[in-house]
Amino acid sequence: MINLENVNVEFGEFKALHNINCSINAKDFILILGHNGAGKSTLLDVISGRLTPSSGKILRNNVDISLLSEAKRARFISRVFQNTNMGSVATMTVAENLAMATLKCKTAGFNFAIKNFPQQIVEETLKPLGLRLEELLNTPIGKLSGGQRQIITIIMATLCEPDILLLDEPTAALDPVSTENLLQFVHNFTKNRNMATMMITHAEQQAKFLANRTWVLQKGKLESN
């Protein structure tokens, strides 16, 4: 589905990514491990379009998307950051944020989405979780706990069924209990979907039950694939 061919990212003399070759297939759950500064986030930056590779190609279904902007890639690549503030608008309610997230696939107009779509999400996504998030629809998302907000952010990132979901240390700002809940949620949420998931995490032991592949990055090089 997505292939990286000889991808390099250089910042002056510093090589952040060195000759990366890999492929990501549908339904893959890839755990990305490595020390700080190993190039994990840079790898996700390059895939999501936040960074343009210095050389090499990123192919989606054999079409080169290396020069496609981040906004254009957002139609098929969703990303969730460790900072829970980055994936939503804190002053808007949960319902408004969810409605905004539907704009990416534009299955309905926004006015329709704001009135009807949250109800659909309530029935199909929020209620089955059993976390009572459906009771918080009219609460500004900034008032939710970090764990609740991250779960909503992941739901928002997947509403339009992307090819790949990129999770950049989604548990970094969470306490151990919330981390456990979030990982369980990610497991339940991704297993029946036809998308690939890549997750950077330092909670390796807690998260390894999720993955079918594990990549280790060291000094910008993909050591195991």
Binding site: E70, A71, G87, V89, A90
Partner: peptide, 13 residues
């Protein structure tokens, strides 16, 4: 409020 969020919606900041 959040330019990154708008980019992630596929909209042009």
């Amino acid at each position: 409020i959040n330019e990154q969020f708008v980019t992630s919606l596929g909209k042009s900041v």
